Amino acid sequence: MIWKDFTKLIKLRLTFLVVFSASISFLIGSKVNGEIVWGNWLILITGGFLVTAAANCFNEIIEKDLDKLMKRTMDRPIPAGRMTTGQGLVLGLFMAIFGTYLLGKLNLTTGYLSVFSILLYAFVYTPLKRKSPIAVFVGAIPGALPPLIGYVAAHPKIDEIALILFGIQFVWQFPHFWAIAWVLDDDYKLAGFRLLPSGKRNLTSAIFTFASTLLLVPVSLLPTYYGYGGYYVGGVSLICSVVFLYLAFKLLKDLQIDSARKLMYGSFFYLPIVQLMFLFDFIGKVK
């Protein structure tokens, strides 16, 4: 039960996706430097896991009373009463401090970015969710920082490749999160969250979702356009983007929860496929 509660506290699946994204970018940055330091890769994974877990922990502490109102979150350890706020705070602070220390050992830029990510996610995005749909834009910034953090952990310079990695994940956040918000809108409204662009499941929200997915098509081709990837990553990214766009068009056409759910599941596959292809193609080009 302790492990199960811990995984709910840190949102294990989300944390895993974040760490995966950062680790892929670390390998890309390492190839820019010419070699992969696997010890640093392990430090990044450990530090990234702890920092992400800490941000999620602080998020749940702040939203403990709201989590009680939603079916999806009422069984989390703090709102369910299996863990006190104090216990969660101590655990979150330990993970934040130790995780930041590990990432700071790689270089100061990585450490600073990790602190910025925690602060922006937990203390700006989290309270903003009840005030305005602009919260999704704000949340997309810390949501897109993991690949940037992973890259500069290996290559401590924010260059074109770093910005491309950040840009792909930043734009991806919008159709990904709006699809989730569409599916869970009834639950979110119980806590007063305003996350869909118009605040409702309607044509306006579907148009914003479709437009963001459309924007992702050229953004996903940036690695090939700037010569950091070849036709493999370009072709796979284009195929994935077109499929993703089709799913968003289906939502635009019928405005159904089922279509939003398919778009949400599609987003889970889209990002790791595109990032892995970028890595494999980039390694092939620099050999």
Score class of each variant (00 low, 15 high):
F137H: 13
L145N: 01
I149T: 04
D159T: 10
A153W: 02
G167H: 01
F174T: 07
F174M: 06
H155T: 08
F166H: 08
A144L: 08
I141G: 02
L163F: 15
I180Y: 06
Q169K: 05
W178G: 10
K157E: 15
A181D: 11
P142D: 07
I161R: 10
F174A: 11
Q173A: 00
Q169F: 13
D187H: 10
G150I: 03
L145D: 01
F174E: 12
I161M: 15
F166R: 08
P175V: 06
A140V: 11
A144D: 05
P156L: 00
L145F: 15
V183T: 00
G139T: 09
L184Q: 14
F170Y: 14
P142M: 05
I180F: 12
V183N: 02
P146V: 04
L145K: 06
I164Q: 08
A140F: 12
G143P: 07
A140P: 12
V138D: 08
A153M: 01
H155K: 14
V183A: 08
W182G: 11
W178P: 03
L145R: 03
I164H: 10
D159N: 14
F174D: 02
P146Q: 03
G143D: 09
I164M: 13
L184F: 15
E160N: 14
I149V: 13
V136Y: 07
Q169M: 15
F177N: 12
I141C: 09
G143K: 09
I149K: 00
I149Y: 05
I168A: 06
V171Y: 00
F170D: 02
G150F: 08
L163R: 12
I180V: 14
I180D: 01
L145C: 12
A162H: 07
F177G: 07
Q173E: 11
P147I: 08
P175Q: 08
H176W: 06
F177W: 11
P175M: 10
W182E: 02
D186C: 04
I149W: 06
A154V: 05
I180L: 15
I158W: 07
Q169G: 00
G143M: 07
V171A: 02
A153P: 12
D187G: 09
P146D: 06
I180P: 02
I164Y: 11
P175E: 00
